[in-house]
Design a binder for these strands. Structure first.
Lengths: 224, 224
DNA sequence: GGATGTGAATAGGTTCACAGCG
DNA sequence: CGCTGTGAACCTATTCACATCC
C-alpha cells in the first residue's frame, strides 16, 4: 500500500530555527558588495551571522546547494539556491493590518529589504487613514480586507492592530484563507494549527534582554 | 578539594527559552482581570500562552514558586514570584538610541507595558530631534550617550539606528558598560560575549512567516 | 592543507509517567 | 480524584570527528 507519503521519507524537513538561519544567511550574503570575492567559505558566513561553520554547512545541506572544497561556495549561486529553497524564486504577496506607529515602522522597514516579498495593501479601521497613502502604501478600509485576501489568495499577513482588535482581525484573516501571520499584538492568538503564527512582542523582548543584562550569561544569537 | 563551584550544583540555570516563557506567563497573568478567580492551574496558564501544562510547571520550578495541588497557583503570589525572579522586583533603567520610525514605535509600545522597566532617555544624532520631547521622552544628543550610560550604570539599551551606524553605536554602548542590547538594526553586531544581544529583524521575521505560510507546517509558538 | 559533507556523539529541551498531596 | 512537582525517557538541535575532495 503505502500511498500516503506521511512524513515524506528521505526529504529532510526544515525546522523553524534552520529556516530562520537560512533567511539570515541570505540577508548577510545580500549585504556583501557585488564586486567582492566570488567564493565564500562556510566559516566566513558563520562569522557574518554569529553561527558556527558546521552549523552553516548543516543548514546548507537543506537547500541542496553544494560548495567546493578549497574554494567554498559560489556566492551568487548560493544566494540563488537559498532564494529557491525559501521562496521558489517567486514573489509572494503580503498585507498589513493596522497602520499605527508600529505598522508604519514595519511598512518603512520591510519595503526594499525583502525583494521577494511585496506588501500589496495596508488596512486600518480609522476612516481618517483609509484612502490615504502612508509610507508609500495605500490604506484600505477594513471592510475590504476579507475580499482582497481571498480573491488574491494572499498567504501572509502582518498584524499590528491594538490588542483589543487582534483576535477578531486574526479570525477574519483566517476565514479569508491566510496561511501565516506575523503578530505584533501582545496576545496569544487562537488560530487553527494549519496557520503559522510568529509573535513579536517588543515589550517582552526587552524584558528578556533586561534579564540577561543582569545575569550576564551566554551568547546565543538568533535574529528573531 | 573541589573549591570551584563550576556549574554551581543544585541551582538550575535558566535557559533563554525558559526566560522567554516566564516573561510571557507574567504578561498573560497581568492581563487577567483583578477580580477573577484567585487561583489558577498550570493548564490554564498553558492555554493562555500556547504552552503545555507540564512545560509551565517545569518553568515555574525555576522561580521557586509553589502551587497547591487541588487549587493551583495563587495568581498574585505567582506574579510576584516571577517578578522577583526576573527583576528582583527592582526597576531597571533602559535607554533607546535612534528615534526614527521604529524607535518611536518602540517608545510608544514599551511605555506602560513593562512597569519594571523604565526608559530613562532617548538619543538621536539628528539635531532637529535633540532637545525635543518625542513620544513622551526627551531626546538627547549622541554626545551625551556614553556619559549617561556610564554614570547611571544603565544595563540595557535599545538600538534602533540605521544599519550604517549600528556597530559604532554598539561599540560606544559597550564601552560605556552596557550589559544587554535589543538590536533592531539588520546587522550582526560584534560585541564581547559578556554582552547579551537579542536581534529583531522585522524583514527577516516576515520572511520566515512567508516560508511557513507556503509550507503549512507545525505550530511552535514563542513570543520572541 | 584546508575545505566540504555527513554519520555518530553529545547537549539541550520537552514530554511522559507517576509519587505525593490536599 | 485531579492537581503539583519531578526523575526518567524521549526527541530535537548542535557539535565532533573524519572520510573525501581540490
Amino acid at each position: 500500500m503505502m500511498t500516503k507519503k506521511a512524513n515524506l521519507p528521505g526529504k529532510a524537513e526544515a525546522s523553524d530555527k534552520a529556516v530562520g538561519r537560512l533567511v539570515l544567511y541570505r540577508k548577510r550574503l545580500a549585504g556583501i558588495p557585488e564586486d567582492a570575492r566570488r567564493f565564500i567559505y562556510s566559516h566566513e558566513i558563520g562569522e557574518l551571522c554569529g553561527v558556527t561553520s558546521t552549523q552553516v554547512r548543516r543548514d546548507l545541506m537543506l537547500v541542496g546547494s553544494s560548495g567546493n572544497p578549497n574554494r567554498g561556495y559560489e556566492r551568487r549561486d548560493l544566494a540563488q539556491s537559498i532564494d529557491e529553497f525559501l521562496f521558489e524564486q517567486r514573489r509572494q504577496k503580503v498585507i498589513l493590518v493596522g497602520v499605527g506607529n508600529l505598522g508604519r515602522a514595519v511598512l518603512a522597514y520591510v519595503s526594499r529589504r525583502s525583494p521577494l516579498l511585496v506588501i500589496v495593501a495596508a488596512f486600518d479601521s480609522d476612516p481618517a487613514k483609509t484612502g490615504r497613502v502612508i509610507m508609500g502604501y495605500r490604506c484600505h478600509a477594513m471592510t475590504e480586507l476579507g475580499d482582497l485576501v481571498d480573491s488574491q489568495a494572499i498567504p501572509t499577513g502582518i498584524l499590528s492592530v491594538p490588542v483589543a482588535a487582534a483576535q477578531e482581525v486574526a479570525d477574519r484573516l483566517v476565514a479569508a484563507g491566510i496561511r501565516g501571520i506575523l503578530n505584533f499584538a501582545p496576545v496569544t492568538l487562537r488560530v487553527p494549527h494549519t496557520v503559522y503564527v510568529e509573535d513579536i512582542d517588543l515589550a517582552m523582548a526587552l524584558e528578556k534582554v533586561a534579564f540577561f543584562a543582569r545575569h550576564g550569561r551566554h551568547v546565543e544569537r538568533m535574529h528573531v
